[in-house]
Design a binder for these strands. Sequence first.
DNA 1: GACCGGAGTGGAACCGGTACCACTTTTGTA
DNA 2: TACAAAAGTGGTACCGGTTCCACTCCGGTC
Lengths: 344, 344
Amino acid sequence: MKKAPTIRDVASAAGVSVSVVSRVLNPESGPVAPAKRDMVLRVIEDLGYRPRAAARELSVGHAPTVGLVVADLANPFFAQLADRIVWEARSHGVQVVVMTTQEDPHLEADSLDTLLDRSVGGVIATPTGANVEKWARLQSLGVNVVFVDRTIPELADVDVVSIENVDSARRATEYMLGLGHTRIGLITGPISTSTGRSRIQGYQAAHDSRSVPVDPQLIRDVPFRGDGGGDAVGSLLALPDRPTGIIVANTAQVQSAVRRLVQTGTRIPNDLSVIVFDDSPWTELTSPPLSIIRQPIGMLALHSLELVLGRMQGKLPDGQRTIEVNADFVPRNSCSPLVLTPTR
Amino acid sequence: MKKAPTIRDVASAAGVSVSVVSRVLNPESGPVAPAKRDMVLRVIEDLGYRPRAAARELSVGHAPTVGLVVADLANPFFAQLADRIVWEARSHGVQVVVMTTQEDPHLEADSLDTLLDRSVGGVIATPTGANVEKWARLQSLGVNVVFVDRTIPELADVDVVSIENVDSARRATEYMLGLGHTRIGLITGPISTSTGRSRIQGYQAAHDSRSVPVDPQLIRDVPFRGDGGGDAVGSLLALPDRPTGIIVANTAQVQSAVRRLVQTGTRIPNDLSVIVFDDSPWTELTSPPLSIIRQPIGMLALHSLELVLGRMQGKLPDGQRTIEVNADFVPRNSCSPLVLTPTR
DNA sequence: GACCGGAGTGGAACCGGTACCACTTTTGTA
DNA sequence: TACAAAAGTGGTACCGGTTCCACTCCGGTC
């Protein structure tokens, strides 16, 4: 329980001033005679000296830290995203403070305050959609913000990394339309979120291009949390003219939706063709394995971290930046042509 | 991009000294006249003042922060654990710095150094099993350490929260033995980890109590990372006298193992009875739904956080503490009696 | 031989809080 | 009413780094 050595301990043990030790620690900040540098390094080693982050932060005014604000780590999508970001950040000598919002704007606001207190240089977030003014304030205080997966259109000047939501939803829908399905259920995220809206847009576009009318009843936007996916499945299947295919475009609701299908004994793909937005390995462990839109989490993580670090180092030109990475459609065996198995 | 107000700005704006503002901020540290308190609070509100964490940390010598060192956030087990811990910590006003080790002792050592630099008051970790001296040093520096899920026996004085590993493995094994299986494969974690050893011990105990001999060939300890689970399944099934049941007691390898079973067309439970250690919702989405040992992640999170916070506040009596929470066995449909479906 | 520029160095003022101490005012009690 | 105890207040030295500045040596150049 002895206290850790400080830079002054090192300085006196090495017979130099603290300035010299500091310059050894931060080579760019000034010259040091090679002999003294070696001496200092040896003393540092001997004493097991490590600079205290708080002192440096206080002095330089900001921390080599990025905040990561995700909705829910228990959700594999966010968990994998966090994993990759934490991992990648480490190799850049940057620490990550993880906060979760549970999709609650209040908790999100809280998180931002906390990160502000920590003087983080940047924040990567999957915003709830609220707290517009709070995000703006964060930016005005010099914190670099990157939104990943979702965005808030009202906020100009925030970098965004997402998958090609419109296109992904369009491709999934076209695939089903191509199989002959004309009544396709869509379970997506809240329309208050950009992903929710974009995926509806893609779904609509696919229908338009084939001149298939869209029945609004078939579109269900459900919250990310809770059991909305299962309920939406239930109510879609209870429709008088029930859909012959379902696209679950709300990643957080995939398990809930599939569970409901299993519970109700719905045979896939005979009774219902299914495509889900997900990338969890378990989607190939069901029978049949599910056709998925695979979200390239690694790419999302990489780009968002690169953006935020680039901003923090001022290495990026001004102006908002949007990066859209494309998501693969992975057909497996959860869809079948409508003609071969007419409904009922 | 204007700079944030400091405590001195608040003091002068409120017409008081910094001492008073500080006492308003930390009520326990001294009295303040109600009128002045209100005044200060109003100014704080007006200016949008927030104390800087770094300054406080430097002054008090430690941070209201716990480090969380997990192997791999992409693994749902750790992800859920992290989620609960982060969540629970917030309600205590404590922040969590998450680090991942990817099961690599070097990265683990790195992480500990980083957390030390941050002056965290405590660390919750799923240790790799190495870095014994490093953990000890951390403790000697006054950092409270709590191991969760796994432990390192060499380290006395470290609190541990885990599930009843021996007992859980014993119950799963007894269940299978009770169904008439006598050749039961066990896929567990590395014997270098406490969980790996304990689960083998429970497996052994169950056999002993029924006087069924244990064939060492049937026990496979595989690393947490990589595809060892699938490979172990493959080699177990290739055995001349292949097992009629398998217990996957390595949570991280469950998906890999099940994937191999699916790929090889093994019929569950007809060809093989299966029990896995897991708690992911997807285990009931396979067909048949898998019988599981459910790890009570919420309890692990709660207890470990309570322990570490309790230590940090000095509210706990001295002496190492071990908490074992029990894990439920949830029978579903992946096991069948041996007598009804003889092998081959 | 005077002068310049740069390498190398140490002193000390910060950064923004906390906490101790000395001091003045109020309050309570005999 | 007297006086001790408690409430309330401000000044200031920390905490452990960084950074600016002044200063001393050098060698090289005209």
